[in-house]
């Protein structure tokens, strides 16, 4: 098993390195590259316990290439834990995670990232001390996967003009020009979330895990975020898995949702159907009115 994964990652790395010579954007295989209906992400029977608590029990879900899927549920249902199991911060106690036909549970985080899984964090994780532009530049450099210590020592580690361009464009498309050279500590939460998103996007991920991206944003920023996500879906064809409590935003973004409660998948399907389900309403909405249709 491990052998299989390691060789294929190597192949990925070399192909990424080759591609780096030609064009910047083609470094990663484009999304949904005609593999039929095979799901991009497949979570099968994942179970995770910590301490005495069953954080996830036998959870399964699928995301097709280019598809945006919502993941909702009450606090403590296990949404972030599931993200952690997909992205590699946690390893499931049982079950498998398959990405693009390849089993990835057991792989470390950075290798999953190189396969094309990007993520943002619920509790924002910026590179403290680095400016907005630098944050994106690290990710951009990392996309090539050709950063080596010896290259730096020969003074060949500086970013190429194309990479600088790429980063500039991302800064512009996120509307972050004003704070491009501001350190992470001095930007607002909303700008920080956009930086996280941009950092993932410059790598052209095939799957993007978004953990409460609108949480803590003001209405201006929420609007900006929704616009960026629309562009991402349309132009990059990135598949997304979205955890979000703002149901307006979920409704605007997703084709279908999964509902987690107490670590179990209690429902799935189109948002409206799911929200009219009694179990979901009791667990998640309480007495809140139905979401806008």
């Amino acid at each position: 098993m491990t052998e299989v994964t390691s060789t294929s990652t190597q192949a990925k790395e070399t192909s990424a390195a080759d591609a780096a010579d030609s064009t910047a954007t083609a470094a990663r295989p484009s999304a949904g590259s005609g593999r039929g209906s095979r799901p991009l992400l497949e979570v099968r029977g994942v179970t995770k316990r910590f301490g005495g608590i069953q954080a996830l029990s036998n959870v399964s879900l699928e995301v097709a290439p280019g598809e945006t899927v919502g993941l909702i549920g009450p606090n403590g249902a296990g949404k972030t834990t599931l993200f952690d199991c997909v992205n590699g911060l946690m390893h499931p106690d049982a079950g498998t995670v398959i990405f693009d036909g390849q089993r990835i549970d057991g792989m470390p985080v950075y290798r999953r990232a190189r396969l094309g899984i990007g993520r943002t964090f619920q509790k924002i994780e910026l590179f403290a001390g680095a400016t907005v532009r630098e944050q994106l530049m690290v990710a951009e450099r990392e996309k090539r996967g050709d950063g080596r210590l010896w290259k730096d020592l020969l003074w060949r580690g500086a970013p190429s003009p194309e990479e600088v361009d790429e980063v500039d464009q991302m800064v512009k498309s996120l509307g972050l020009e004003d704070v491009a050279d501001t350190p992470a500590e001095a930007i607002s939460l909303g700008q920080g979330r956009l930086v996280e998103l941009g950092r993932a996007l410059v790598q052209r991920p095939r799957l993007l895990l978004l953990d409460e991206p609108s949480s803590g944003l003001d209405s201006n920023e929420t609007t900006a975020l929704a616009a960026v996500l629309t562009v991402v879906r349309r132009d990059f064809g990135t598949a997304m898995l979205l955890v979000e409590h703002d149901l307006d935003m979920v409704a605007a973004a997703v084709t279908r949702v999964y509902v987690l409660d107490f670590g179990r998948m209690i429902a799935s399907g189109p948002l409206d159907d799911v929200l009219s389900d009694d179990a979901v309403r009791a667990a998640y909405l309480g007495q809140a009115p139905l979401a806008p249709s």
Binding site: F127, G129, Q135, V138
Partner: peptide
């Protein structure tokens, strides 16, 4: 070079750097 950027990233947030 690249390594310097990687180090700055790791110093800032190892979690995000790995991701």
């Amino acid at each position: 070079g690249t390594t310097g950027r990687q180090l700055a990233a790791l110093r800032g947030s190892e979690l995000a750097a790995a991701s």
